[in-house]
Design a protein around this nucleic acid. Structure first.
Length: 455
RNA sequence: GGCCGGAUGGCAGAGUGGCGAUGCAGAGGACUGCAAAUCCUCGUACCCGAGUUCGAUUCUCGGUUCGGCCUCCA
């Protein structure tokens, strides 16, 4: 079954065909490193990680190039560094490191290339110079601005026209703009702000050019997939298209645009002022990263998703069911990914459906009568989990957790086994109650007694 | 104001122009010393109103509602 993806450019699900049938390139807008990433930031990282894993399966690991940038020059960074009394470098390094830890805990593979904006300033300047030379940009009061009117195609991604934008503008237009819709490519820096020498004096790039520069540098002028959050469609991605296509002589920029939906927290929009704001770190303190990943993938990437504690608990329970089914089984050789999993994912990344298939496989595993069949299903489950970035842990490790009281628990469990053997059920139940107080569940199976941590 | 999405049973969440996905929760049963886990059985959900149709949750139009963008934002 072929891969189809919803393309924001056409607002339709389209058959995906890579520009080069052997290799795929994907660019995803990464974090601006000025603060801890929140759960909304995690959504695209997880979603595009699944797409990355799927593409690697379809094209081969060496034939997918995933580029996710780090924006380390931005006015929010400048403001946060000043507020924290730390240097910009300290802030961006510290925050980028925290981001890497967070997304690794969520089971995301690192991208193939993680370019930093500050390392691509010459490329940005080159693009800007070209745009000026072609009349797509102009210099005004130390700024360089992109002339939206010079681009007849402007608005094709967000499907809005220039007049509508002007009509809806809620912000005062800077006096040096020739047209209200024009946006900044380069702006002057005062001595205390980060800046680079340029033909227009010491300054720093505007927000959008960096992605044009970095994607061209690492994927070429035209590439396959560009992803990001819904909110980036306008203005960020629209402006990226305008700059890139004008700078590249009208050559198409990204061919498939994918955007993930927004996230709410406990039924309300996430906002700092309401305190309705959940950073990844706090979520990881509440549940294992794999549960958070599962909670995210329980929803389709384009739909709105309400992030609740209940959802996280449900995700954790689902994983318990999966790992419980695989518990106590010998290691199995890697199986191929079941077709029904691929069918779900190839249908515009239908991860909720893929999770349903996981449940089906577990049901079949639980009902399987022969060891061969069980082993086959376990192998399929692990292979299916691998494309989703789930189920790669040792079941014992998942079910028992990594607290250091395991020896003590094993001891109590042994005492209970002895009591049961002596038919002293009152004592056995007493010990079970003691363990329950510690959050430990006891399971007496045909194969013996095992324990796991509850909730 | 303009533009764009979503609305499915107690909850989560696929999908389809006509056979009530799937998981959780709940009821009953099997198994168990008792439990847990597992298995079996059990539910007439598709926001509202029109229209198209033999038939609509699924298509069309209108409305309601939630959310997004238009300004930094995943």
């Amino acid at each position: 079954m072929p891969l189809s993806l919803h393309n924001t450019l056409t607002r339709k699900k389209e058959l995906f065909e890579a520009l080069d049938s052997k290799n795929v390139g994907m660019y995803v807008c990464g974090p601006t490193v000025y603060d801890f990433a929140h759960i909304g930031n995690a959504r695209p990282v997880i979603v595009f990680d699944v797409l990355y894993r799927l593409l690697r399966h379809l094209y081969g690991d060496a034939h997918v190039r995933y580029v996710r940038n780090i924006t380390d020059v931005d006015d929010k960074i400048n403001a946060a560094a000043a507020a924290n009394c730390e240097s910009i470098r300290e802030l961006t390094e510290r925050t980028a490191k925290a981001f890497h830890e967070d997304v690794a805990a969520l089971g995301c593979l690192p991208p193939d290339v993680e370019p930093r904006a500050t390392e691509h300033i010459p490329q940005m300047i080159a693009i800007i110079e070209k745009l000026i030379a072609q009349g797509n940009a102009y210099v005004a009061e130390g700024h360089v601005l992109f002339s939206v009117k010079s681009d007849a195609d402007y608005g094709k991604l967000s499907h809005r026209n220039r007049d509508e934008m002007i009509a809806g503008a809620r912000v005062e237009v800077a006096p040096y703009k020739r047209d209200a819709a024009d946006f900044v490519l380069w702006k002057p820096s005062s001595p205390e702000l980060p800046g680079w020498h340029s033909p227009w004096g010491r300054g720093r790039p505007g927000w959008h050019v960096e992605c044009s520069a970095m994607s061209a540098e690492h994927l070429g002028e035209t590439f396959d997939i560009h992803g990001g959050g819904l909110d980036l469609i306008f203005p960020h991605h629209e402006n990226e298209i305008a700059q890139s296509e004008c700078a590249h002589g009208g050559k198409p920029f990204a061919r498939y645009w994918l955007h993930n939906g927004f996230l709410m927290v406990e039924g309300a929009k996430m906002s700092k002022s309401d305190g309705n704001f959940r950073i990844i770190r706090d979520v990881l303190a509440e549940a294992p990263g794999e549960a958070a990943r599962m909670a995210m993938l329980m929803g389709h990437y384009r739909d709105p998703l309400d992030w609740t504690s209940e959802r996280l608990t449900q995700a954790k329970q689902g994983l318990d069911r999966f790992y419980l089914a695989m518990r106590g089984m010998a290691d199995v050789p890697a199986a191929t990914i079941p077709d029904r999993i691929l069918a779900a994912l190839e249908d515009d990344l239908n991860t909720p459906q893929a999770i349903v298939v996981l449940h089906e496989l577990v049901g079949e595993l639980n009902k399987a009568e022969t060891d061969e069949e069980k082993a086959r299903l376990k192998g399929e489950l692990i292979a299916a989990g691998a494309v989703l970035g789930l189920l790669q842990q040792d079941p014992e490790a998942w079910l028992k957790g990594d607290k250091d009281d395991a020896a003590e628990i094993d001891d109590l469990v042994a005492q209970r086994i002895a009591a049961r053997k002596a038919k002293n059920f009152a004592e056995a139940d007493r010990i079970r109650a003691v363990l329950a107080m510690k959050g430990i569940l006891i399971e007496d199976n045909a194969g013996g007694t095992s324990w796991r941590r509850a909730g």
